[in-house]
């Protein structure tokens, strides 16, 4: 479930990066983070499948809920990292303009 949620997040981030490349939102970091994690969890899933065989596809409900929460938390963490980087690098100068206009008053 974590892998699935991360893959969806990676695909959405990539589509947003492709369509909004000129908006200078630094979406590349999200793509790299989610794709990197997806690839790593894919390997984890393959090893787990080799160990569990068919059982891998029939997880317990409790495990599924836990994995879903984990997947959503991972996506949220990635978004937080992206927002923090966006505000620090401030590619459009929004934060700088906002701070300078407040100090001028």
């Amino acid at each position: 479930m974590t892998l699935l949620i991360t893959v969806f997040a990676a695909v959405i981030a990539t589509v947003l990066w492709y369509t909004r490349k000129n908006d200078n939102l630094g979406l590349g970091i999200l793509c790299f983070m989610y794709w990197g994690a997806s690839l790593m969890w894919l390997v984890d899933a393959i090893f787990e499948y080799v160990e569990l065989q068919e059982e891998y596809f029939t997880p317990a409900l409790e495990d599924m809920i836990n994995d879903t929460f984990l997947g959503l938390s991972v996506v949220a963490l990635g978004l937080v990292v992206w927002v923090v980087k966006l505000l620090i690098t401030d590619p459009r100068g929004v934060v700088r303009r906002s701070l300078s206009s407040r100090t001028a008053r």
Binding site: T2, G28, M33, G36, A37, M40, W41, S73, V74
Partner: peptide
């Protein structure tokens, strides 16, 4: 830089899973 971003980004989220 692409490779470092993939590795660092992925490892960061994986590390979070291990903390979880």
């Amino acid at each position: 830089k692409w490779l470092t971003s993939l590795l660092i980004g992925g490892s960061f989220l994986l590390a979070f899973e291990h903390v979880w």
